[in-house]
């Protein structure tokens, strides 16, 4: 009898402890979810819950998702021109392009299909007067949507890896005075600053093009033109030794794309005019990505050429 009542008492105590455990566990979960959601809504890092006019919103290391959501309201509300292209353009300095407020849509490892999907988020809500469209073979080599780009939802702004990354960056720069690598105009700097070294490479493989990606790039430019956007093409620079290695392929790619794409002025950084830029190793961190010095110089050159092209 005593043993039975001891067991019953233990079971009752277990039951009481379990109830307490449940209340605490579920309570803390709800509290964390609620407060995190409230903070996310208040910070509204993608500008989709409140009026985004005049705000400075940055991306984070999950820039695909960030840019996808920023394009839904923030970009059309604050910018009237776009930079479109591959990762070799992500650290350009659009603030140097006078006369327009440029947003840099370029993505690290990005491709034409992703760029089209991004810009299509913004087009229904804004008018873009100018678009700089980069020409570099990597852009049209693939059409896969990376990082779950095809499944981005607005709810992600209420607490996701991407939004928490941005919130963290904002808090770090606000309270710890750590400058962010990501800027409100869509550009970001590269963390590393190394000087490229020519390296032995295998066969020339970069020119194999993906027809879906090529078609998407053409469609994107046509959609922009139909909406009244003026297009300026920029053939991205390459570090000279690397360019020499692939010169014929790159040039034939450029010729092919300029023929397929709607007509427009072309700023060609692979032409002889810019050989000195390409041979300076301090302008590059690898074969195509620019150092901050290179990005600075190139952006100033583009600004001059852009004004001329748009006259």
């Amino acid at each position: 009898m005593n043993a039975t009542s001891t067991v019953t008492a233990a079971a009752t105590q277990d039951e009481r402890k379990s109830r307490h455990w449940l209340i605490v566990a579920l309570g803390v979960i709800l509290l964390c979810v609620g407060s995190s959601t409230a903070v996310a809504w208040r910070m509204d890092v993608y500008g989709i819950f409140r009026d985004p006019h005049g705000r400075d919103l940055i991306t984070s290391s999950h820039e695909r998702r960030a840019k996808f959501l920023l394009n839904q309201a923030y970009v059309p509300a604050n910018f009237d021109a776009l930079v479109i292209g591959a990762s070799s353009q992500v650290n350009w300095l659009p603030e140097y392009f006078s006369g327009y407020r440029f947003y840099n849509e370029s993505l690290e490892g990005g491709n034409a299909s992703e760029e089209r999907r991004l810009v299509e988020q913004a087009m229904p809500h804004g008018h873009f007067k100018v678009a700089i469209v980069g020409l570099y073979p990597r852009t049209t080599k693939f059409h896969d949507l990376q990082d779950g780009f095809d499944t981005v939802r607005r709810e992600e702004a209420l607490g996701s890896i991407s939004s928490l990354g941005v919130e963290y960056d904002i808090l770090m720069s606000r309270f710890m005075h750590q400058p962010s690598r990501f800027f409100p105009n869509g550009s970001h700097s590269f963390p590393q600053q190394v000087t490229p070294k020519p390296h032995a490479r295998g066969p020339h493989v970069i020119i194999a093009q993906d027809p879906v990606a090529v078609a998407d790039y053409i469609a994107l430019v046509q959609e922009l033109q139909n909406a009244g956007t003026r297009i300026v093409y920029v053939v991205n620079p390459m570090y000279e030794p690397e360019f020499e290695y692939d010169r014929d392929e790159i040039q034939s790619y450029t010729a092919m794309m300029t023929k397929k794409l709607p007509a427009g002025p072309v700023i060609d950084f692979l032409s002889a005019d810019y050989a000195s830029f390409r041979t300076n190793p301090h302008n590059f961190i690898d074969d195509v990505h620019l150092s901050s010095t290179g990005a600075n110089t190139l952006s100033r050159i583009i600004n001059v050429r852009l004004q001329r092209a748009l006259q």
Partner: peptide, 25 residues
């Protein structure tokens, strides 16, 4: 067992799980 440590585990695992679920991953 309904201990504080297990409560912390459940809370942390769930919250991190939520963040990943909401990241469309």
């Amino acid at each position: 067992r309904p201990t504080a440590l297990n409560c912390a585990y459940a809370v942390v695992l769930t919250l991190i799980g939520f963040v990943f679920v909401n990241s469309s991953i």
